[in-house]
Design a protein around this nucleic acid. Structure first.
Lengths: 220, 220
DNA sequence: GAAGGGAACTTGGCATGCAATATACTGCAC
DNA sequence: GTGCAGTATATTGCATGCCAAGTTCCCTTC
């Protein structure tokens, strides 16, 4: 469990954001299992903060689909629902397709280099079986394009849709899916280098939809 | 200004949701102007509820980009930024394109009839100059497809991206843009009726991007 | 012994009080 | 007169208390 950092006062960090990140990561990495009840009081003593920032964070998590809050009854970690994960991946695929299309004209050799570097990290992390690093490298790869797109809302939507996907991926991460992704990443960079923005955008979408197929067979 | 409904107790309606809707509509219809300060205390006496549900609603509005919260300083209505509105419209266009593509196979004659009816309401509302009814009819038109898509997250994302667009549209609603939309709606229904899902999806996207052009010249 | 009802406990939603910080104003010095 | 510093106020973030709704368990009754 990550220690809550309450001593960081210079950047005016908000407790509710820290709590959100802590809970989000805990749900993604399986510290809190699907269906598990999240009692305010437990989280209160767990994170060392009051109920207010915790409830604000839980509201965000509920909107992201990671927790399911039944007013007056209970707040539980959202059960792993393949249908919902598929929905989230369709959203993510559309966003990455859009980001790639928008980033196309702004792509520089440096950006392509960064993407290749992230893809290499991704590949070696897969070989080493380091799922954590693999997912972070995957994020880094796509973050190049979302950043270059110039549309800041894309990141907001993705930040809302991706956690659900990540949790499912982590639960059953088929290395074959990862290896396919490495090849798809390479193809995206190649298309961008060739100036084929439409092709790169389609590949970005496919990249997120093919991952979907592996998750689709999961059942919580 | 809408009167706050606090007497509705039968359906376990949450105060924070009522507050969110009230504030959202007030910002969209110009009751609260861009840059205007939103003091918790004022809203407290305004809506007749405590600060807690108000702050929870403001957090949602901040994530939707309708309010800009500077921690410890002030919370203001987000200034009308054409760039941000354009970003939101790219998101909305992608979502509607995706929804149309997904809804394609599930489209029924009844659904097409509902869309045509909504489009007629939309057209007559434009003629009558009833912007409120026009926007609601436009929503009803597209809601048919988002509902048929089977992807519930699409509605969530749209509910987050659309208010920004609606506010801008309302500020300077060129009736010409509306008339173009009527024709585009008709074309979408026609393509769906002909079984051309790809064409309908492309038109759905274009429909939201062309609206964008009219908003783009606005400046807050 | 089983089923129904009621009471107590659990839990989350809402209200309110406290603390910290940013801004603005005022007073003093140069 | 201007610039800086100190203080006061206003406003948000955080903590806590209260209340209603739901669930569970036990007691009573058939």
């Amino acid at each position: 469990m990550p220690t809550p950092q309450t001593s960081n006062v210079n950047s005016r960090s908000l407790l509710r954001d820290d709590v959100y990140l802590s809970l989000r990561d805990a749900i993604i990495d399986g510290t809190f299992l699907p269906g598990e009840r999240l009692r305010d009081q437990e989280l209160e003593s767990w994170l060392g903060v009051s109920r207010t920032p915790i409830r604000e964070a839980l509201l965000r998590l509920a909107r992201a689909g990671l927790v399911s809050a039944k007013p007056g009854r209970a707040t539980i970690v959202a059960p792993a629902n393949p249908k919902i994960v598929g929905d989230a991946q369709q959203i993510a695929a559309s966003m990455h397709e859009l980001a790639t299309r928008l980033a196309g004209p702004a792509v520089t050799p440096d950006a392509l280099g960064a993407m290749e570097a992230a893809n290499l990290d991704f590949a070696s992390a897969l070989v080493a079986g380091d799922i954590d690093l693999a997912l972070r490298s995957d994020d880094a790869f796509h973050a190049v394009l979302t950043g270059l797109s110039g549309n800041t809302m894309i990141a907001d939507v993705l930040e809302q849709a991706t956690p659900l996907i990540r949790r499912a991926e982590r639960q059953r991460f088929a290395s074959s899916a990862g290896r396919e992704s490495v090849e798809q990443h390479r193809a995206i960079v190649e298309r961008l280098r060739a100036g084929d923005v439409d092709g790169a955008a389609a590949l970005s979408r496919d990249n997120w939809m093919t991952l979907h197929q592996h998750v689709d067979h999961a059942d919580g």
